[in-house]
Design a protein around this nucleic acid. Sequence first.
DNA 1: CTGGCTGCAAATCTTTTGCATCCTG
DNA 2: CAGGATGCAAAAGATTTGCAGCCAG
Lengths: 135, 135
Amino acid sequence: MERYKQLGIKLTPQRLAILDYLDGNKSHPSAEDIYRAVSKRFPTMSFATVYNTLGSLRYKGRVLELTIDPKKKRYDPDTKHHHHIICIECKNIVDVHKDFKLSIPDALTEGFDLIGNHIEFYGICPKCKKRKKGL
Amino acid sequence: MERYKQLGIKLTPQRLAILDYLDGNKSHPSAEDIYRAVSKRFPTMSFATVYNTLGSLRYKGRVLELTIDPKKKRYDPDTKHHHHIICIECKNIVDVHKDFKLSIPDALTEGFDLIGNHIEFYGICPKCKKRKKGL
DNA sequence: CTGGCTGCAAATCTTTTGCATCCTG
DNA sequence: CAGGATGCAAAAGATTTGCAGCCAG
Protein backbone atom coordinates (compact mmCIF):
# COMPACT_ATOMS: atom_id res chain seq x y z
CA MET A 1 0.00 0.00 0.00
CA GLU A 2 3.00 2.23 0.52
CA ARG A 3 3.74 2.22 -3.17
CA TYR A 4 0.27 3.59 -3.91
CA LYS A 5 0.95 6.81 -2.01
CA GLN A 6 2.77 8.27 -4.96
CA LEU A 7 -0.52 8.28 -6.82
CA GLY A 8 -1.51 11.44 -5.03
CA ILE A 9 -5.08 10.36 -4.38
CA LYS A 10 -6.75 9.59 -1.08
CA LEU A 11 -6.22 5.94 -0.25
CA THR A 12 -9.47 4.66 1.16
CA PRO A 13 -9.93 0.96 1.94
CA GLN A 14 -12.19 0.66 -1.10
CA ARG A 15 -9.58 2.15 -3.37
CA LEU A 16 -6.90 -0.11 -1.96
CA ALA A 17 -9.12 -3.10 -2.67
CA ILE A 18 -9.61 -1.94 -6.25
CA LEU A 19 -5.89 -1.31 -6.66
CA ASP A 20 -5.14 -4.75 -5.23
CA TYR A 21 -7.59 -6.34 -7.63
CA LEU A 22 -6.10 -4.51 -10.60
CA ASP A 23 -2.46 -5.03 -9.67
CA GLY A 24 -0.98 -7.43 -12.18
CA ASN A 25 -4.47 -8.33 -13.41
CA LYS A 26 -4.36 -9.48 -17.02
CA SER A 27 -8.08 -10.11 -17.45
CA HIS A 28 -9.00 -6.63 -18.76
CA PRO A 29 -11.98 -6.38 -16.40
CA SER A 30 -15.05 -4.27 -16.95
CA ALA A 31 -16.38 -1.93 -14.28
CA GLU A 32 -18.82 -4.64 -13.30
CA ASP A 33 -16.09 -7.26 -13.02
CA ILE A 34 -14.26 -4.96 -10.64
CA TYR A 35 -17.44 -4.18 -8.75
CA ARG A 36 -18.24 -7.85 -8.28
CA ALA A 37 -14.74 -8.78 -7.20
CA VAL A 38 -14.35 -5.97 -4.71
CA SER A 39 -17.89 -6.32 -3.38
CA LYS A 40 -16.89 -9.60 -1.77
CA ARG A 41 -14.73 -7.66 0.65
CA PHE A 42 -16.90 -4.54 0.71
CA PRO A 43 -20.55 -5.51 0.48
CA THR A 44 -21.52 -1.84 0.49
CA MET A 45 -19.30 -1.01 -2.49
CA SER A 46 -21.11 1.03 -5.10
CA PHE A 47 -20.64 1.46 -8.82
CA ALA A 48 -20.15 5.16 -8.22
CA THR A 49 -17.02 4.38 -6.23
CA VAL A 50 -15.72 1.98 -8.87
CA TYR A 51 -16.22 4.51 -11.65
CA ASN A 52 -14.93 7.35 -9.53
CA THR A 53 -11.77 5.41 -8.70
CA LEU A 54 -11.26 4.30 -12.29
CA GLY A 55 -11.61 7.91 -13.33
CA SER A 56 -8.92 9.01 -10.89
CA LEU A 57 -6.60 6.16 -11.81
CA ARG A 58 -7.06 6.93 -15.46
CA TYR A 59 -6.30 10.57 -14.85
CA LYS A 60 -3.15 9.57 -12.98
CA GLY A 61 -2.14 7.28 -15.83
CA ARG A 62 -2.49 4.15 -13.75
CA VAL A 63 -5.06 2.36 -15.93
CA LEU A 64 -6.10 2.49 -19.54
CA GLU A 65 -9.65 2.40 -20.80
CA LEU A 66 -10.05 -0.10 -23.62
CA THR A 67 -12.70 0.47 -26.27
CA ILE A 68 -12.13 -2.94 -27.74
CA ASP A 69 -15.41 -4.46 -26.54
CA PRO A 70 -18.51 -2.89 -28.08
CA LYS A 71 -20.67 -3.78 -25.10
CA LYS A 72 -18.73 -2.02 -22.39
CA LYS A 73 -15.48 -0.42 -21.41
CA ARG A 74 -12.68 -2.63 -20.18
CA TYR A 75 -9.79 -1.48 -18.03
CA ASP A 76 -6.14 -2.39 -18.31
CA PRO A 77 -3.72 -1.81 -15.44
CA ASP A 78 -0.79 -2.48 -17.75
CA THR A 79 0.02 0.97 -19.08
CA LYS A 80 3.09 0.00 -21.03
CA HIS A 81 2.42 0.39 -24.75
CA HIS A 82 1.05 -2.88 -26.04
CA HIS A 83 -1.62 -4.36 -28.24
CA HIS A 84 -4.42 -6.89 -27.85
CA ILE A 85 -5.85 -10.05 -29.34
CA ILE A 86 -9.58 -10.43 -28.75
CA CYS A 87 -11.49 -13.68 -29.17
CA ILE A 88 -14.44 -13.01 -31.45
CA GLU A 89 -16.35 -15.76 -29.66
CA CYS A 90 -15.94 -15.18 -25.95
CA LYS A 91 -14.44 -11.67 -26.03
CA ASN A 92 -11.49 -12.81 -23.99
CA ILE A 93 -8.56 -10.41 -24.40
CA VAL A 94 -4.84 -11.11 -24.17
CA ASP A 95 -1.89 -8.76 -24.38
CA VAL A 96 0.67 -8.54 -27.17
CA HIS A 97 3.84 -6.95 -25.96
CA LYS A 98 5.53 -6.28 -29.24
CA ASP A 99 6.42 -2.99 -30.81
CA PHE A 100 5.29 -2.63 -34.39
CA LYS A 101 6.88 0.20 -36.32
CA LEU A 102 3.88 1.75 -38.00
CA SER A 103 4.40 4.73 -40.20
CA ILE A 104 1.83 6.30 -42.44
CA PRO A 105 2.82 8.18 -45.57
CA ASP A 106 2.09 11.88 -45.10
CA ALA A 107 -0.24 11.69 -48.06
CA LEU A 108 -2.59 9.51 -46.01
CA THR A 109 -2.66 11.29 -42.67
CA GLU A 110 -5.11 14.00 -43.74
CA GLY A 111 -3.10 16.54 -41.81
CA PHE A 112 -3.37 14.77 -38.47
CA ASP A 113 -0.51 14.95 -36.00
CA LEU A 114 -0.04 11.34 -34.93
CA ILE A 115 0.37 10.59 -31.26
CA GLY A 116 0.00 6.86 -30.82
CA ASN A 117 -1.62 3.70 -32.02
CA HIS A 118 -3.23 0.53 -30.83
CA ILE A 119 -3.68 -2.69 -32.74
CA GLU A 120 -6.61 -5.00 -32.18
CA PHE A 121 -6.02 -8.49 -33.46
CA TYR A 122 -9.09 -10.65 -33.88
CA GLY A 123 -8.99 -14.36 -33.52
CA ILE A 124 -10.28 -17.46 -31.80
CA CYS A 125 -8.90 -18.42 -28.43
CA PRO A 126 -7.81 -21.97 -27.66
CA LYS A 127 -10.84 -22.60 -25.45
CA CYS A 128 -13.35 -21.58 -28.11
CA LYS A 129 -11.40 -23.47 -30.74
CA LYS A 130 -11.77 -26.64 -28.71
CA ARG A 131 -15.41 -25.96 -27.87
CA LYS A 132 -16.32 -25.55 -31.54
CA LYS A 133 -14.54 -28.72 -32.50
CA GLY A 134 -16.66 -30.59 -30.02
CA LEU A 135 -19.90 -29.55 -31.75
CA MET B 1 -31.63 1.43 -56.02
CA GLU B 2 -31.25 -1.44 -58.43
CA ARG B 3 -27.84 -2.22 -57.12
CA TYR B 4 -29.22 -2.71 -53.62
CA LYS B 5 -31.38 -5.65 -54.68
CA GLN B 6 -28.43 -8.00 -54.47
CA LEU B 7 -28.42 -7.41 -50.74
CA GLY B 8 -31.27 -9.84 -50.39
CA ILE B 9 -33.19 -7.79 -47.87
CA LYS B 10 -36.55 -6.10 -48.28
CA LEU B 11 -36.00 -2.63 -49.68
CA THR B 12 -38.34 -0.31 -47.89
CA PRO B 13 -38.20 3.45 -48.48
CA GLN B 14 -36.64 3.86 -45.04
CA ARG B 15 -33.91 1.38 -45.84
CA LEU B 16 -33.21 3.03 -49.14
CA ALA B 17 -32.85 6.35 -47.36
CA ILE B 18 -30.39 4.81 -44.92
CA LEU B 19 -28.47 3.15 -47.74
CA ASP B 20 -28.36 6.44 -49.61
CA TYR B 21 -27.07 8.21 -46.56
CA LEU B 22 -24.39 5.60 -45.99
CA ASP B 23 -23.30 5.25 -49.61
CA GLY B 24 -19.84 6.75 -49.90
CA ASN B 25 -20.21 8.33 -46.48
CA LYS B 26 -16.81 8.83 -44.86
CA SER B 27 -18.03 10.36 -41.60
CA HIS B 28 -18.32 7.11 -39.62
CA PRO B 29 -21.76 8.05 -38.31
CA SER B 30 -23.33 6.77 -35.12
CA ALA B 31 -26.85 5.36 -35.05
CA GLU B 32 -28.07 8.75 -33.92
CA ASP B 33 -26.29 10.53 -36.76
CA ILE B 34 -28.05 8.23 -39.19
CA TYR B 35 -31.37 8.65 -37.39
CA ARG B 36 -31.12 12.43 -37.49
CA ALA B 37 -30.12 12.54 -41.14
CA VAL B 38 -32.80 10.16 -42.34
CA SER B 39 -35.49 11.65 -40.12
CA LYS B 40 -35.46 14.75 -42.28
CA ARG B 41 -37.02 12.71 -45.07
CA PHE B 42 -38.95 10.35 -42.79
CA PRO B 43 -40.20 12.22 -39.76
CA THR B 44 -41.68 8.99 -38.39
CA MET B 45 -38.38 7.14 -38.60
CA SER B 46 -37.59 5.27 -35.41
CA PHE B 47 -34.37 4.15 -33.81
CA ALA B 48 -35.65 0.60 -33.99
CA THR B 49 -35.62 0.81 -37.77
CA VAL B 50 -32.14 2.31 -37.83
CA TYR B 51 -30.74 -0.40 -35.58
CA ASN B 52 -32.69 -3.11 -37.35
CA THR B 53 -31.37 -1.98 -40.72
CA LEU B 54 -27.82 -1.63 -39.45
CA GLY B 55 -28.11 -5.14 -38.09
CA SER B 56 -29.18 -6.52 -41.47
CA LEU B 57 -26.52 -4.58 -43.33
CA ARG B 58 -23.90 -5.78 -40.94
CA TYR B 59 -25.06 -9.35 -41.36
CA LYS B 60 -24.86 -8.93 -45.12
CA GLY B 61 -21.37 -7.50 -44.82
CA ARG B 62 -22.43 -4.09 -46.06
CA VAL B 63 -21.31 -2.07 -43.04
CA LEU B 64 -18.80 -2.46 -40.26
CA GLU B 65 -19.39 -1.63 -36.65
CA LEU B 66 -16.53 0.42 -35.21
CA THR B 67 -15.73 0.16 -31.51
CA ILE B 68 -13.29 3.02 -31.74
CA ASP B 69 -15.42 5.55 -29.87
CA PRO B 70 -16.03 4.67 -26.22
CA LYS B 71 -19.27 6.62 -26.12
CA LYS B 72 -21.11 4.82 -28.86
CA LYS B 73 -20.85 2.57 -31.86
CA ARG B 74 -19.96 4.07 -35.19
CA TYR B 75 -20.72 2.53 -38.56
CA ASP B 76 -18.52 2.36 -41.62
CA PRO B 77 -19.96 1.61 -45.07
CA ASP B 78 -16.45 1.07 -46.40
CA THR B 79 -15.92 -2.63 -45.86
CA LYS B 80 -12.56 -2.87 -47.56
CA HIS B 81 -9.91 -3.67 -44.98
CA HIS B 82 -8.54 -0.40 -43.67
CA HIS B 83 -7.54 1.41 -40.50
CA HIS B 84 -8.47 4.64 -38.76
CA ILE B 85 -7.02 7.79 -37.28
CA ILE B 86 -9.14 9.27 -34.52
CA CYS B 87 -8.79 12.80 -33.22
CA ILE B 88 -8.43 12.62 -29.45
CA GLU B 89 -10.05 16.04 -29.19
CA CYS B 90 -13.14 15.97 -31.39
CA LYS B 91 -13.35 12.21 -32.06
CA ASN B 92 -13.36 12.81 -35.77
CA ILE B 93 -12.32 9.68 -37.64
CA VAL B 94 -10.58 9.34 -40.99
CA ASP B 95 -9.68 6.26 -42.99
CA VAL B 96 -6.20 4.91 -43.64
CA HIS B 97 -6.16 2.71 -46.69
CA LYS B 98 -2.81 1.07 -46.27
CA ASP B 99 -1.99 -2.54 -45.70
CA PHE B 100 0.39 -3.15 -42.82
CA LYS B 101 1.96 -6.56 -42.67
CA LEU B 102 1.53 -7.47 -39.06
CA SER B 103 2.80 -10.76 -37.86
CA ILE B 104 3.05 -11.91 -34.30
CA PRO B 105 5.62 -14.47 -33.20
CA ASP B 106 3.83 -17.68 -32.21
CA ALA B 107 5.27 -17.32 -28.75
CA LEU B 108 3.06 -14.27 -28.22
CA THR B 109 -0.27 -15.42 -29.61
CA GLU B 110 -1.27 -17.48 -26.57
CA GLY B 111 -2.63 -20.17 -28.87
CA PHE B 112 -5.09 -17.88 -30.65
CA ASP B 113 -5.88 -18.47 -34.32
CA LEU B 114 -5.54 -15.00 -35.83
CA ILE B 115 -8.22 -13.83 -38.22
CA GLY B 116 -7.73 -10.12 -38.74
CA ASN B 117 -6.60 -6.85 -37.26
CA HIS B 118 -7.48 -3.22 -37.03
CA ILE B 119 -5.19 -0.34 -36.17
CA GLU B 120 -6.40 2.75 -34.37
CA PHE B 121 -4.08 5.69 -34.75
CA TYR B 122 -4.55 8.51 -32.29
CA GLY B 123 -3.79 12.07 -33.16
CA ILE B 124 -4.95 15.64 -33.43
CA CYS B 125 -6.88 16.70 -36.49
CA PRO B 126 -6.02 19.88 -38.39
CA LYS B 127 -9.11 21.68 -37.08
CA CYS B 128 -8.34 20.98 -33.43
CA LYS B 129 -4.69 21.82 -34.00
CA LYS B 130 -5.68 25.24 -35.24
CA ARG B 131 -8.26 25.76 -32.52
CA LYS B 132 -5.74 24.98 -29.78
CA LYS B 133 -3.20 27.34 -31.27
CA GLY B 134 -5.75 30.12 -31.06
CA LEU B 135 -6.11 29.75 -27.28
C1' DC C 1 -11.00 19.81 10.49
C1' DT C 2 -12.11 19.88 5.70
C1' DG C 3 -12.11 18.64 1.09
C1' DG C 4 -12.27 14.69 -1.19
C1' DC C 5 -14.62 10.09 -1.09
C1' DT C 6 -18.52 6.85 -0.35
C1' DG C 7 -22.87 4.95 -1.25
C1' DC C 8 -27.47 5.22 -2.45
C1' DA C 9 -30.75 6.43 -5.80
C1' DA C 10 -32.17 8.78 -9.62
C1' DA C 11 -30.96 10.31 -14.17
C1' DT C 12 -28.91 9.82 -18.70
C1' DC C 13 -27.53 7.65 -22.84
C1' DT C 14 -27.23 3.97 -26.03
C1' DT C 15 -29.15 -0.05 -27.65
C1' DT C 16 -32.62 -3.74 -27.54
C1' DT C 17 -37.17 -5.71 -27.42
C1' DG C 18 -42.39 -6.53 -27.69
C1' DC C 19 -46.05 -5.98 -30.36
C1' DA C 20 -49.72 -4.28 -33.33
C1' DT C 21 -49.85 -2.68 -37.90
C1' DC C 22 -48.06 -2.17 -42.49
C1' DC C 23 -46.21 -3.28 -47.04
C1' DT C 24 -42.58 -5.49 -50.05
C1' DG C 25 -41.76 -9.30 -52.84
C1' DC D 1 -51.11 -12.53 -48.92
C1' DA D 2 -47.38 -13.98 -45.74
C1' DG D 3 -43.43 -12.91 -43.56
C1' DG D 4 -40.45 -9.52 -42.80
C1' DA D 5 -40.26 -4.42 -41.62
C1' DT D 6 -41.94 -0.26 -39.23
C1' DG D 7 -42.75 2.64 -35.30
C1' DC D 8 -43.97 3.41 -30.84
C1' DA D 9 -43.07 2.73 -26.17
C1' DA D 10 -41.12 0.27 -22.69
C1' DA D 11 -37.04 -2.29 -21.09
C1' DA D 12 -32.37 -3.23 -20.50
C1' DG D 13 -27.43 -2.11 -19.73
C1' DA D 14 -23.68 0.85 -18.95
C1' DT D 15 -22.26 4.98 -17.09
C1' DT D 16 -22.95 9.47 -14.76
C1' DT D 17 -24.67 12.59 -11.38
C1' DG D 18 -26.67 14.76 -6.97
C1' DC D 19 -26.20 14.87 -2.48
C1' DA D 20 -25.92 13.86 2.52
C1' DG D 21 -22.78 11.82 5.53
C1' DC D 22 -18.06 10.05 6.30
C1' DC D 23 -13.05 9.77 6.89
C1' DA D 24 -8.01 10.12 5.22
C1' DG D 25 -4.53 13.33 5.30
